[in-house]
Design a protein around this nucleic acid. Structure first.
Lengths: 130, 130, 130, 130
DNA sequence: GTGGTCTAGACCACG
DNA sequence: GTGGTCTAGACCACC
């Protein structure tokens, strides 16, 4: 499982872990019943304090995305399709809203902004195809 | 000058002040030579400690967006149009890119994403017209 | 790390700290990834309030010379060699230009001024060798 | 008399006034017995608070460079040649020393630094001849 | 009146 | 343990 930590972003490490795992569950990178790496494994791999990973896992559990099976480990929980869609929508909405607010505050019109958005999408896609 | 502080967002007050003033300068809400509210005025209005406001102003000064005139007050600095455009572009690009990356990672197509973006823009606009 | 504070110079303490650390980074006395003294350590050593040190560090961070690693400490940021050279050149040029302008305004010839400059350099060097 | 005030330099205005008048006396731009502009005249011309000019004049008087003749005005004092030379030397020395200290701290050798100094002198001279 | 600096002390988030 | 934020209050320089 690919997990990238940016120590210089100012975003707390445990939140970066949460966000990325949550996203992998949403996008199908992690499926129902898949076992997560143990706290120590992941901590070692990311060169991060085990407490940090543990904290991230606790939040994911509280969110219901992950289940603890005692003595065995942590597993991706079954997520109802509705709930999955809902979370997906929320993720997208949050990200898009920030961009929208910025565009409005900078005085960029809806047409300009939407066009710019599409252009960036295109560019990013073609970049990742390389 | 409109300035909204959210005490519960977790974002430090002085950073909220920095961000909002920076944006008002960028969007022309505050122009070259305009005087900023005095530290004490703004502090009183936001009901925060004057030092908190002063801290925000200091960072804006270090950024070159604001100038001190001793014993007089703080004024919006002259920013070259080129530089202003460059900062604006960067702000928008950063915000849009994050949304784009999220859309791609969630498997949302360009058409869907762009349409969603436009819809959110519309909704936000109509909300702020209220 | 050598840091000298002059409490009677009129120059704010935090600015003295900024200037000296910036210069140590520029001259290679502090290198990429080196850990800075903790806020409390340095504050204790200089016998100033921790917030004063923290303030200095914040500005260095805003300048991009220093990076926070949360819960760990502060580290010297990676500065591109080009950028470093550019900053160095600028620092030297500014200082030299002021001396040049003064020499010209006082009617001192180029030869005299350059000789005087070399003499002062020599004297300062021998003084610091003591 | 040419006097330039930079409101953005961070240097107190009254100090800018002192420095420039002192320099004009030293370089002969102002001679023994010349009358200085009145406080109000100068303040009006520089668009500065009269108190600021008055403060500058007081310091110049305390320094002995200027004399108050009651009911008439302020005049440039007679300065002994020795004293004039001494002040001149001091001005140059201060300016040069700052450049020297910077060069040493940046690890620039005496030869390099002196050559750079001469080059800057040359360049500045040719620029002002244009 | 303006802004700037520093202190002392409390509280928080992160690892 | 690390740094960050905010407050309250004192003092200073400048205009």
């Amino acid at each position: 499982m690919l997990l990238e930590i940016d120590h210089h972003s100012g975003v707390p490490i445990y939140r970066q872990v949460i966000r990325q795992i949550r996203q992998q569950i949403m996008t199908g990178g992690l499926k129902d019943g898949d076992q997560l790496e143990t706290v120590r494994q992941l901590a070692g791999r990311l060169k991060v304090n085990p407490m940090t990973v543990s904290k991230a896992y606790s939040f994911l559990e509280a969110e219901g995305l992950v289940e603890r099976r005692r003595g065995v480990g942590l597993f991706v929980a079954k997520v109802e399709k509705d709930q999955r869609e809902q979370i997906k929508d929320q993720l997208l909405k949050d990200a898009v809203n920030k961009a929208v607010v910025m565009a409005i505050q900078l005085g960029v019109s809806q047409e300009e902004a939407a066009e710019f958005f599409a252009r960036q999408y295109e560019e990013y896609k073609s970049k990742s195809r390389r």
